[in-house]
Design a protein around this nucleic acid. Structure first.
Lengths: 200, 200, 200, 200
DNA sequence: AGTTAATCGAGACGGTACGTCAGGTCTTGGC
DNA sequence: GCCAAGACCTGACGTACCGTCTCGATTAACT
């Protein structure tokens, strides 16, 4: 029986946040690494230089770890900007989001997460919360445009947001069509049309 | 491991199609049954009163069976109609599609399929083919409207189709929001706006 | 997966006896190998080039495997002979038995078995059966002497047998004193005294 | 893990010998409790209202604790008496020893100890020392008889002692035959025969 | 009608990953 | 400064499925 990993000392009875970070980092790296075989708890534990039990102590299942690791990473990409033009902001936000997913690792991670969420209630919950937050950000972007008069006051912003993210996830999970800036532009264009004009 | 020699005519016992049907039926029932634990090959074989090897003889993996079982079922729901009004046809098609997924078994099956497709290349292929075909049907519906002059000649039909199916799958897999007729109507409305008016 | 239908004979693949042999051989080798760490199921499976499940399919616990492996080996050593003199037979039997346990591997194996039996009901049962059989053999040896008039007709053969095996196991498990031929001779002598003369 | 035991507060910087006693008491109680699952360090620590580290501070391993707890208890049972007749003393000593082990808890504890000793060098050492001491006591009893002329001057006292304890442990660990006073009497009788008469 | 060979249900096989349990080490904070 | 509490790493456990490999029985086409 050996002691803890040499470079990361134990912290005692309190939770060791370094271990938590190491687990989430290792999980994301494995996810993005595109390893054909699904990411396993063993692999995460080994990559994080952590005991398996430490993972199970803080997360109820593998899916929950995967979900949290990816949600954490997702928040760092595709920030919402405010340039004064909601139309421009929408386009650049969608372009950023799509382009970030051109990294094969990111799509792969997204797919692993989606797969985990279908089989794991905890992962589903984390995914639901994360995407709800992302939708709220995009909705706020559109609401700004609506206030400024760029968009119709009666525009169904919630549905427009769903359409935007719907296409993103549909391409990532189902059709596997490329998530390039061209697609982002065309998607953005359709949403803007619908946002500007509710009735003839 | 190889098949019969090509120069020698086939003499052995022929494939039992009843077994094939039983496998697909049992698979779909298990999918729709909403069993918490993921559908397993063992469960399918037992439910179909079939040996495991019989499944592996005809499908390359579990995902492929799941995908085929579900695709077969999917084709029976939500037929495309032609009433003369593409707008009306779109709305009723989307409503039919959404409402069919209000059956908890159907959504559950869809989720299992999506999960399988993320980890199984065969399932991914079947899912891609199936959804491409469904998109083609919806696109044809919109194209009819375009030819009749209901929609703008320059409308980006492909993207509109993606937006429609995107919302459907997004609700089914990610947000788990209800797939009710209200949502179908709102979605239909946004698509019609974008289809009718490309530019001011 | 349930068992075969009672009205239909067994049709599945038969048990692979080579695997059974390999498991028992590997177990005994590991036992005798004197590996400090207790023999594990993983180690047995790997040494036997067998899946872990194959072990669990046929034995209820690790202890049961260990017990069977050792009992099988034990039967091959220290055969009971019949030279015409029960006294000589007893001495040579005890000497053979002790000397066989001078092999460090054999004692080690015996200790592992005893340890397993204290914690595992299955192993305890196998050990009990095995030792009962060994006692019966030794008792038969003494009974021959009794019939021939070498020993007192009222001698308590059962207790004498227990005393013989008691010393053997006591040295192996508790005192760890050497199991040499000297000890065997002294033990044999005491038993012969008690066997010959019940009362003054 | 519950809170600290209410009746034994921390003692601060000074070493708490009450903790040591509590650990040995709790260990023996758990051993004798006959809990199916092997006694664990966690269970001992909890029962003794002690931190795990406090156990490891004073004992090198679980086996050592178990061994010491049982040896301490063993010394309190089956005292050697001196009635003037070594034969009578032997019989009553063996009867006392056997009967003490009719308590299921005691046999269970003995088995746990034996199991621990096979896998733990520390426990083996404690067991060896303890049993050596017990043998010495019994040998002294027999030596008194020898000096008084009750037994043959050439009697092999060491082997006789081994035979007595051998039967005790053999019944406890291997055959699981009852350790009743009848068996003790029969065993005592055989030993006395051998002790009295070395040769015709 | 008999021969031939591929199919069938059944289930044992070698594996991989799971989630749990226990052992022994180390740190924190209370007393 | 001792001690409870408990987080930590390690590693074995027994289970669940996977996909493959026999078995003996069945059955359809070709003799």
């Amino acid at each position: 029986m050996t002691g803890p990993h040499p470079s990361r000392p134990h912290t005692g009875r309190r939770r060791n946040d370094a271990a938590r970070e190491a687990i989430l980092d290792a999980t994301f790296e494995l996810l993005a690494g595109g390893h054909t075989a699904g990411v396993t708890i063993d692999a995460i534990a080994e990559a994080a230089a952590v005991g398996r039990q430490t993972i199970y102590r803080w997360w109820p299942s593998k899916g929950a770890v995967v979900a949290e690791a990816l949600a954490r990473q997702g928040r760092r990409l595709a920030p919402v900007r405010d340039s004064g033009s909601a139309a421009a902001d929408l386009t650049s936000f969608l372009t950023d989001s799509f382009v970030a997913l051109q990294d094969p690792g990111m799509v792969h991670a997204l797919r692993e997460l989606a797969a985990a969420a279908q089989q794991d209630e905890h992962a589903a919950q984390v995914l639901q919360d994360f995407t709800a937050q992302r939708r709220a950000e995009l909705r706020a972007l559109l609401a700004r445009g609506q206030h400024r008069g760029e968009f119709d006051a009666a525009a169904d912003l919630d549905m427009l947001v769903e359409m935007a993210y719907g296409v993103l996830w549909y391409r990532a999970l189902i059709s596997r069509d490329p998530l390039d800036s061209g697609a982002a532009g065309r998607l953005s264009a359709q949403i803007l049309i619908a946002a500007r004009k509710v009735q003839e």
